[in-house]
């Protein structure tokens, strides 16, 4: 590798890329600080910054309630998804149950767009009386993300040295105890990464949430925000503030957990 001259050029090439990816986020912050007149002048930063949009947004819609719904639904479904996917992934890989057939079917089930399941799941929730409930969303998300979790966990399990499990079996541990007491602690980073990813997927989900909930008590944040621009008066400043409030939890997780996330995504995405 040649000395730093080349690096300088590469760094300069990276600057506009970083700028492009930072732009919408910075603009949201800028707009959230603008007064109503300021929004219309089309400049980037506010001329007279104000914090008034923030409390106004929280008053205009039940933003805190929406965020709470989203957090509850996504955390619960994330936990259930891991509990469902981990034993199965372990069984397919180590106990040779289900085999290639099961992993192929699981993966291909992810190929169909969610719109395919929209109408049938609507009737399912209606039949079991869970339409417009948070429990209904938890149920759907838990199941829907199993293929993703299954696929993300697989490479972590595969890289685990089998000798350790064999030693546990020699000591008389059953497969379930081996999984819980030996495997789980070793692949914990992979489990954490997978949990974060499926939780964020649920937190961000919009299609099912918009069709399966219709009261403020159950609506998740994306649905709540989407209504913000619908029947209420469009106020860009408040919309930006509400959006930022909704993004904040995910970005906090991303910042603190980035190491796990990059490895989780990178290993799971490409075989």
């Amino acid at each position: 590798m040649r000395p730093s001259g080349r690096h300088l050029w590469l760094g300069l090439a990276a600057a506009p890329i970083v700028g492009f990816f930072a732009l919408p986020f910075l603009y949201l912050i800028a707009v959230s600080l603008k007064t109503k007149d300021d929004v219309l002048n089309g400049r980037f930063w506010p001329t007279t910054p104000t914090l008034a949009n923030w409390p106004a947004a929280f008053e205009a819609a039940n933003i805190l309630g929406f965020i709470l719904n989203s957090v509850i639904v996504s955390l619960l479904s994330g936990l259930v998804t891991i509990a469902l996917a981990l034993p199965s992934a372990y069984a397919v890989l180590r106990l040779k149950i289900g085999g290639k057939w099961l992993s192929d079917v699981t993966l291909s089930s992810y190929m169909a767009p969610p719109i395919v399941a929209l109408i049938p799941l609507f009737f399912l929730l209606k039949t079991i009386g869970l339409l417009d409930t948070r429990a209904g969303l938890v149920l759907i998300y838990s199941f829907a993300n199993v293929p993703v979790a299954f696929w993300l966990l697989m490479p972590f399990l595969r890289r685990m040295p089998i000798e350790i499990e064999q030693a546990a079996a020699m000591d008389g541990a059953g497969p379930f105890r081996t999984l819980l007491q030996i495997v789980v602690p070793i692949i914990a980073p992979g489990i954490v990464a997978t949990f974060i990813i499926v939780t964020v997927l649920s937190y961000n989900e919009f299609l099912f949430a918009s069709a399966f909930t219709f009261s403020d008590a159950t609506r998740t944040l994306p649905v709540g925000i989407s209504l913000f621009q619908g029947d209420r008066l469009v106020n860009f400043g408040q919309m930006a503030a509400a959006s930022l409030a909704g993004i904040a939890p995910v970005y906090l997780v991303a910042l603190f957990m980035q190491r796990y996330l990059v490895s989780g995504l990178a290993h799971g995405g490409v075989k």
Partner: peptide, 12 residues
């Protein structure tokens, strides 16, 4: 062991 995934596939 694989029942959870089978149920998930059945439902979704």
């Amino acid at each position: 062991w694989i029942a959870p995934v089978l149920v998930a596939l059945a439902v979704t």
